[in-house]
Simulated assay, not measured.
Amino acid sequence: MPSPVMIVGAGPGAPDLMTLRAARAVEAAEVLVWTDSLVSPTIAALAPEGCERIRTSTLTLEEVLEVVVQRARDGRRVVRLHDGDPCLYGALQEQICRLADAGLAVEVVPGISAYQATAAALGRELTIPGVVQTIVLSRAGGRTGVPERESLERLAALRASLCLYLSARHVEEVQAELLRHYPADTPVAIGYRVSWPDQWLTVVPLREMAAVSRERQLIRTTLYVVSPALASAGEARSRLYSADHHHLFRGGAD
Rank of each mutant, 00 (worst) to 15 (best):
H246Q: 09
L137D: 11
Q93M: 02
T127H: 10
G13S: 12
C51L: 10
P147T: 11
R73Y: 01
L38Y: 10
M18W: 12
A100P: 00
E150P: 00
C163P: 03
A100N: 14
V146A: 09
S238T: 11
A114R: 14
G252K: 11
G130C: 10
E94T: 03
Y89I: 03
A45E: 15
A100R: 15
L65Y: 08
H246M: 03
V68W: 02
G252V: 03
A184K: 12
P86M: 13
R80C: 05
L104V: 00
G145S: 13
C163E: 07
V78M: 00
D16Q: 14
A105Q: 13
E107Y: 00
R77A: 02
A253D: 07
P205R: 03
E30C: 02
T60K: 14
A114I: 06
I96H: 02
L240D: 04
S242L: 14
C163T: 08
E125L: 00
A160L: 03
L99G: 02
S57L: 04
P187F: 01
I112P: 06
L152K: 00
A253I: 12
V174W: 01
L81A: 09
H247C: 14
I135T: 12
L178W: 14
A72D: 00
R214L: 05
T19E: 07
L164G: 07
R237M: 13
D83A: 15
R80S: 04
W34V: 03
V225Y: 07
T222L: 07
L206C: 09
E150F: 05
E49R: 15
S57P: 07
I43M: 12
R71M: 07
V79R: 09
E215D: 10
D85S: 12
L178A: 10
C51D: 09
L20V: 15
P129V: 13
D85R: 14
P197W: 12
